[in-house]
Design a binder for these strands. Structure first.
Ligand SMILES: [Mn+2]
Ligand SMILES: [Mn+2]
Ligand SMILES: [Zn+2]
Ligand SMILES: [Zn+2]
Lengths: 154, 154
DNA sequence: TAATAGATGAGAACCATTCCAATGTAATGA
DNA sequence: TCATTACATTGGAATGGTTCTCATCTATTA
């Protein structure tokens, strides 16, 4: 699906909830849709500083929290103390480097079955009414393996 | 395995790493091993206040961070702003209530296979050298379902 | 156009966690 | 046993990401 179609579809979700599509919300969403870098508020602020120099930090937090509330975006922690945000258009999970904090997307055929199985088992056992899940796998990214001398640079 | 056997085994891990088994570390570990309430630092502090009234908050943080570094304890977030800690003796994952924050343990036969499969797939796809994973499932706990009128109290 | 509700922005406030320096205590070795 | 060294605890200060407050601004509705 084209990036602007994703945008339109997502913005419609906001409209459906009587939320206004402001320039700030539009530009933040566009940034998230077009970048897969799992940015922090600070990174978003720096990246959008040229287009909207006066955008307040509160606005970025408010906007991202709104997106999270509507399940358009997920929050991630990589241990660096700040929250990372991820436009969650396509189901996937994350591998997070315990050394440098790098977060990469992962998915594979059959992943959604695994996910669904986990949710069903959990509902059955715990009695919870399931609304979602987070899976994260931790380890050393390829670059840190080299940096730390664990893997040879070939 | 008896609780004191678990304690001994865990304390030995500290000794093996040349870490001293102080009264503070001992009492905090004992609390975690014998409670499955996924406590915060504040909860631990309140619970142990009678036994060690002068224990500093820094000590609790230091101790828990040490345990986490040695993979004896895992950290959990439930959205209430503070970190929750869990003695991770037996592999399991968590169901977290999005309304009240309640965290419950879940496991089932075959869970470790699911877990292992996820780690192997991830290593293969991402090139990461895997050291662990976190799985969390979100939803409404049974009590909140009733409280919110979603499920009838039978 | 008037009235209302929703959104932004600057800075203050919050608060969980970390940092720091002083003090205390266990391990080591002569 | 004494001296030395390394590890740990403590209380308080500092940090810093996030939330809160409120005046201002803008979109929506009637
Ligand atoms: Mn992602
Ligand atoms: Mn648990
Ligand atoms: Zn890395
Ligand atoms: Zn609940």
């Amino acid at each position: 699906m084209a990036s602007n179609a994703v945008m339109e579809e997502t913005l419609q979700i906001l409209k459906d909830h009587k939320l206004r599509v402001t320039p700030q919300r539009h530009i933040i969403l566009a940034y998230l849709v077009s970048h897969h870098n799992h940015p922090t508020v600070e990174i978003i602020r720096d990246a959008l500083g040229k287009e909207l120099p006066n955008m307040g930090a509160s606005t970025i937090y408010n906007t991202l929290n709104t997106f999270v509330d509507h399940h358009l975006v997920v929050e991630l922690q990589n241990g660096d103390g700040s929250t990372h945000y991820d436009y969650f258009g396509t189901p996937h999970y994350h591998a997070i480097c315990t050394n440098c904090g790098r977060i990469v997307d992962v998915t594979y055929p059959g992943f959604s079955d695994t996910e669904k199985g986990l949710e069903e088992k959990t509902a059955e056992i715990s009695g919870y009414m399931i609304s979602g899940n987070h899976m994260e796998v931790y380890g050393l990214c390829p670059e840190c393996q080299i940096k730390l001398g664990i893997k040879n640079n070939e």
